[in-house]
Design a protein around this nucleic acid. Structure first.
Lengths: 341, 341
DNA sequence: ATGAAAGCGCTAACAG
DNA sequence: CTGTTAGCGCTTTCAT
């Protein structure tokens, strides 16, 4: 069913039919009503392509995340979706798997399919790639900051400070030495955490030894493996800071297997604040990332950008949203700790 | 940059340019090379809408899931994506939140935007809705079976049998009475599990008492609440079967809080086999759902359907993929149990 | 308030 | 092997 059929059946011109769709106020109430009823009858649906051929607007935005299996990103996606839905936009979710090529390939695809905007989470792209996108005239924002970004909109949380805060907490609890289990992906995020780990040690005048830093896959198994290595050290750590809850879970398992008690013998702190973090034994102290809010703010920023697209370009914004340490039992309590001593 | 510009610059007709895009073999190597280089130079990108206006094909499929925060569905999505990507298709992920209206609204949107196919997971739609979709001439399949489906392609796992198997395991371990904590969503899936619970009791000539069945939200908190109620019973259950791992986690927490030991005092069995199920204390016995495989098979089935679209219609298929009980420690071991007795 | 007609960018006969 | 041309379904001037 096309517009012509409706026009004929209604005894009007295609122009009038088109008008009731796009500028209903410019057509007389009675013909409008009539045309509407004919549309109903014929179950007419405007052809989206033909329409877009003129409008050049799809009401789609694409969201790129490193891992769809990670609930954190899906929470972010919910934030994005909530504002997109309200603006009558739909989302294309892309799983980049922290693979730069896959990311580029997808971007190519989606730009050619004319999405109206892009949200890139923990992207691996570089300045030149961003310039490419800009040249194509498509709006985009980043979630998760990268060093050396000029004139690019981004909403992020400061993983370095968050890691520092977590470390300070451990140091305050008088755990020492503190080891770090660092995930491989997403790369930049974990590097920030690592640098927070180091700077916290430095601030406390504690040594930072290479053997206390283990890099592994960001999974339960990865955490398990890393912990195993750490426990074999001549001087095993008294605390472990993991860059993700999943890794922390793996580490906890290994620690318990070796007969150590958490947090008495070894304290553990994670990162993510997954739902299950409060149900493992002992409940995991961890950093809560504001994923939903980042999704929300990111989407709003993107829509601002797309709206302003016609107007004068606005200066790039960098929005910081704070993470927050969730103190539970896996790192011990100061009071209890003092009792023990 | 449009095709006309390329044609002019290359000194050929638009038809020839179009041909190098769509039927490259029909154009002489040298003109082809020339045109290609001009395209490069002009950074020409074919307009996707104009193209689709003729082809009437988008290379998009839509995937509807009840909850994007549930990693199970994302695993399924990965299965779908893996075959879609290979076929050069992209996926639109829709979060229905088990809301029938949201589901319908999304379907409307995506059909009008001409996705080539639909995969509906745990849909709430009814026969008439399916007929509607069929009438629109768009291919679709279901994941998760529904009773009374005629002539609709579906891949599913049998939750009733799986629940029965889990229950038989508990019964064999001589836990009695066994309570059930039943999630509210997705509705049909949980109803199947419930009916498995009941039939397993019946088969074992065990009574099925209403007070041992608690319905709650499918979350940790829901499980916690449900367990709390069960433990207040005059005769608290000796085992709890939860329709999801998340609920099982909540139940475990409550059970431990009350000072009971798992599995000695109360056994727990979950459903889903989340990654973390093997790291909670004690490790959770649970049912592993073949989500990735269902996604894979579902996608393949859909593509078969879309390919055959031109050919004679094939008979609707129903593909069953078995779930599998993962026996761990939360339900006890027969041998250990005998020892204790 | 409505209609006629000119495209939007592309594909696919058809003709050479 | 290549060019001419007629649409695909819709929006939008420009008339009336």
């Amino acid at each position: 069913m096309n517009i012509k059929a409706v026009a004929e059946k209604a005894g009007v011109s295609v122009a009038t039919v088109s008008r009731v769709l796009n500028h209903p106020e410019t057509v007389s109430p009675k013909t409008k009503a009539h045309i509407l009823s004919v549309m109903e009858e014929l179950e007419y649906m405007p052809n989206w392509f033909a329409r877009n051929l003129h409008m050049n607007k799809t009401n789609f935005i694409a969201l790129f995340v490193p891992d769809i299996l990670d609930p954190c990103y899906m929470e972010l996606a919910k934030g994005v979706e909530d504002v997109a839905h309200q603006k009558k936009y739909n989302i294309m979710l892309c799983n980049t798997e922290s693979d730069e090529n896959k990311e580029k390939e997808y971007i190519e695809t989606f730009i050619s399919r004319k999405v109206d905007g892009l949200i890139l989470v923990s992207t691996l792209l570089k300045e030149e790639d961003f310039n490419q996108i800009k040249k194509r005239g498509i709006s985009f924002i980043l979630i998760e900051k990268r060093e050396f970004l000029h004139d690019i909109d981004v909403v992020y949380t400061d993983y370095k400070s968050a890691a520092e805060e977590a470390m300070e907490h451990m140091i305050e609890m008088e755990h020492n030495p503190i080891a770090m289990i660092c995930g491989r992906k997403p790369y930049f995020e974990n590097q920030e955490k690592l640098s927070g780990y180091k700077s916290a040690l430095a601030k406390a005048s504690l040594p930072c030894l290479e053997e206390y830093i283990e890099e592994e896959e960001n999974t339960i198994e990865g955490g398990y493996l890393a912990a195993a290595k750490l426990l074999e050290l001549k001087t095993p750590p008294k605390a472990i800071f993991a860059t993700s809850d999943m890794m922390a879970f793996g580490a906890m398992e290994r620690i318990k297997q070796e007969g150590f008690s958490i947090p008495k013998d070894i304290a553990v702190v994670g990162f993510d604040n997954l739902k299950v973090a409060s149900v493992v034994e002992p409940q995991l102290t961890t950093v809560a990332k504001p994923m939903y809010r980042m999704g929300l703010m990111g989407a709003r920023l993107l829509f601002d950008l797309m709206d302003r697209d016609e107007g004068p370009p606005m200066e790039a914004q960098e929005i910081l949203i704070q993470s927050k340490l969730k103190v539970r039992r896996s790192c011990g309590h100061k009071d209890r700790l003092k009792e023990i001593l």
